[in-house]
Design a protein around this nucleic acid. Structure first.
Lengths: 237, 237
DNA sequence: CGGTTGTTTGAACTGATTCAATCTGTGTGG
DNA sequence: CCACACAGATTGAATCAGTTCAAACAACCG
């Protein structure tokens, strides 16, 4: 599909990221030239509160955005992630979720109407975004299986695998972008337990850690623990 | 939006159901006239196994379809439901989930290509299905919050509320279409616990039961327990 | 240096699972 | 109409995975 883009590279252009995600160059140019604001977001500051208008497109240039919902009692569930090159499409009405960057992120925000015009005019682009929507649906189903049926080890392992693939991490290592609290918010657990799971997995020889940086010593075993099969993340078939 | 269609009525036409879901009559006619097979499905018989081709459209005329995934060890997670009038759109490649009717169901199956032609030719129809896709995404997010953050009582209450709305049940009562095992498969629990939750809720005066038939005595309280807010299920805004 | 944010650890607790048995309702065939 | 089979619902007891609360520790940053 696409050549590997280093995870450490901070200044990839949106154009390049879209192209590496499978969009034709001339269409990526069109999106790149759409009227847009470029915003730098500080990590963990709420960018859009729950209930905000969905009348805008967002593309992640670098970093990670999360969609989240809060339950009544201080809890928070992260329901979706957008890595660099991925986007949040417009929705009619208001969003039922909030948007919060995970790491320091750069985002392009455009007008829903402009985006709609572009997509309507280019069936190939429509096709591209349809695929992304399908991919997001597949991810959502995977997460439902994760929170619904897998045990704590499986949940975290699956998330790590998915993250490694979506970040296009080097085969051997990656910098985990999440705090343990965020891993808990994604997998429906508590940070305390996530911590214990991470230590268990390290003890079991799945990877070794140094702060957020982990060296995956046994990728196959990690996939097995998380029953992870990456095919659902592929965009080109 | 739409007039109430009785849940007991078995022989509603797809056309009517689509219209009541918000599709213009002449477009509903077109879908109705598309080449299609009509199938009657027995409850709980797997209709499409996991990994089946996604090269077809399905519309539920009556009954309920479920998308499910099995974990390795006998467990099963239901990741999505389609009630009468709802459909499963084509996907490129193969499905990562299986399809299984909940109740006795009648389904229309058409060819992906035929469907695509229709949609491409009618922007209004495209708009309609886009909205349904967005609705399904909203439901999926709601389920993630459900399995991830709510306790067993909240999960079941939320499911009951959602089901009542999507079945267009009478305000006062409904026939629960699920076995307790299926409720467990949806909410990420065990059937034993679901049973206990149901008895608790009955004891708390949220509803009274007679077999699968429940009379909801306190709808507001049920909504509160499940922190259910039906706006995400609306199609027309 | 002090403040802040995130990680690690322990101990007590509890919500939910597991396993196993019983009960109930429904449909089938004799 | 009864006997039987079968699927689903109900119940109890033991167990355990994961939470809760609280405290200590580490890393980072102005």
């Amino acid at each position: 599909m696409s050549e590997r883009v280093s995870q450490s590279e901070e200044n990839v252009s949106l154009r390049d990221t879209l192209i590496s995600a499978g969009l034709a160059a001339h269409l990526a140019d069109l999106l790149d030239q759409m009227p847009q604001r470029r915003l730098k977001l500080d990590p963990r500051q709420i960018f859009r509160p729950e209930g905000f208008s969905g009348n805008e497109v967002m593309f992640v240039r670098s970093g990670i955005l999360s969609k989240f919902r809060s339950d009544g009692r201080g809890g928070r569930q992260i329901i979706s992630l957008r890595f660099a090159g991925e986007g949040i499409l417009p929705r009619r009405g208001s969003l039922r979720y909030g948007i919060r960057p995970i790491a320091r992120s750069e985002v392009l925000v455009g007008d829903a109407a402009d985006f709609q015009r572009l997509v309507d005019g280019h069936p190939e682009m429509q096709e591209f975004f349809l695929r992304l929507v399908e991919r997001n649906e597949a991810i959502c189903y995977e997460w439902l299986l994760n929170t619904g049926r897998r045990d704590c080890l499986g949940r975290v392992a699956h998330l790590l695998c998915e993250t490694a693939v979506r970040m296009r991490a080097e085969p051997s290592w990656m910098e985990i972008p999440f705090t343990q609290q965020e891993i808990a918010d994604i997998t429906g657990q508590t940070s305390v337990n996530v911590n214990r799971v991470l230590m268990d997995m390290e003890r079991d020889g799945l990877f070794s850690r140094n702060g957020r940086k982990i060296v995956i010593t046994d990728w196959d075993a990690l996939c097995r623990v998380g029953s992870f099969d990456p095919t659902y993340l592929a965009i080109d078939l």
